[in-house]
Simulated assay, not measured.
Amino acid sequence: MAQSQGWVRRYFKAFCKGFFVAVPVAVTFLDRVACVARVEGASMQPSLNPGGSQSSDVVLLNHWKVRNFEVQRGDVVSLVSPKNPEQKIIKRVIALEGDIVKTMGHKNRYVKVPRGHIWVEGDHHGHSFDSNSFGPVSLGLLHAHATHILWPPERWQKLESVLPPERSPVQSEEDCLQGSP
């Protein structure tokens, strides 16, 4: 009887040591390095959730990549919603600070992205709550860079940082004046 209690005690002690080491390591990893998230909605179709409401892609979110706010045009990023801080949204970076972007439904036809901000849009225009609704987004709201689709298995792939050609930033302020009606 005493031997079985000793075995149980040793097992419990080893379990506790492992638990109290593993949990902080896992929490730190998920908070600072990477995590996974399910993408809901149609705003990023066809890149994400191409099957519509019957499927939800699960993506790998790399926190490490955005730790210094280093994003490029075309990157798919997760960010805190400027309108609801309890919600995270996933969008494509269209323009960086200093770029001039031709908007789609924003109150101004052209917007120069201010310092410390980015312009983000969903791939499914008209079905996306994005910078065309709320304007440029502070880099401080960046959460992670979406790098891979992990689920469903038939969609496993690396997410490419591709900027649709029609969404390239305007080259200069003169182009804005020439392009406006």
Score class of each variant (00 low, 15 high):
residue 111 V to R: 04
residue 112 K to C: 12
residue 113 V to W: 08
residue 113 V to Y: 10
residue 114 P to D: 11
residue 115 R to V: 15
residue 115 R to L: 14
residue 115 R to M: 15
residue 116 G to N: 14
residue 116 G to M: 08
residue 117 H to F: 14
residue 117 H to C: 12
residue 118 I to L: 13
residue 120 V to Y: 01
residue 120 V to M: 01
residue 120 V to F: 01
residue 121 E to F: 03
residue 122 G to C: 02
residue 123 D to N: 04
residue 123 D to H: 04
residue 124 H to V: 03
residue 125 H to Y: 04
residue 125 H to A: 11
residue 126 G to F: 07
residue 126 G to N: 06
residue 127 H to S: 02
residue 129 F to M: 06
residue 129 F to V: 04
residue 129 F to W: 03
residue 129 F to N: 08
residue 130 D to I: 00
residue 131 S to I: 00
residue 131 S to Y: 00
residue 132 N to Y: 00
residue 132 N to W: 00
residue 132 N to L: 01
residue 132 N to I: 01
residue 133 S to Q: 09
residue 133 S to W: 05
residue 133 S to T: 13
residue 134 F to A: 04
residue 136 P to I: 10
residue 136 P to Y: 11
residue 136 P to K: 08
residue 137 V to A: 10
residue 137 V to K: 08
residue 138 S to K: 14
residue 139 L to V: 10
residue 140 G to L: 15
residue 140 G to H: 15
residue 141 L to I: 08
residue 141 L to F: 09
residue 142 L to N: 12
residue 142 L to I: 11
residue 142 L to A: 11
residue 142 L to R: 11
residue 143 H to D: 14
residue 143 H to N: 13
residue 143 H to M: 05
residue 143 H to S: 14
residue 145 H to K: 14
residue 146 A to W: 05
residue 146 A to F: 06
residue 147 T to F: 03
residue 147 T to P: 09
residue 147 T to K: 09
residue 148 H to G: 03
residue 149 I to G: 02
residue 153 P to M: 06
residue 153 P to E: 04
residue 154 E to Y: 11
residue 154 E to H: 12
residue 154 E to N: 12
residue 155 R to F: 10
residue 155 R to L: 11
residue 155 R to T: 12
residue 156 W to I: 06
residue 156 W to A: 04
residue 157 Q to E: 12
residue 157 Q to K: 13
residue 158 K to W: 06
residue 158 K to P: 02
residue 158 K to S: 08
residue 159 L to M: 03
residue 159 L to I: 13
residue 161 S to H: 01
residue 161 S to L: 00
residue 165 P to L: 03
residue 166 E to I: 05
residue 166 E to C: 12
residue 167 R to Y: 11
residue 167 R to W: 14
residue 169 P to D: 12
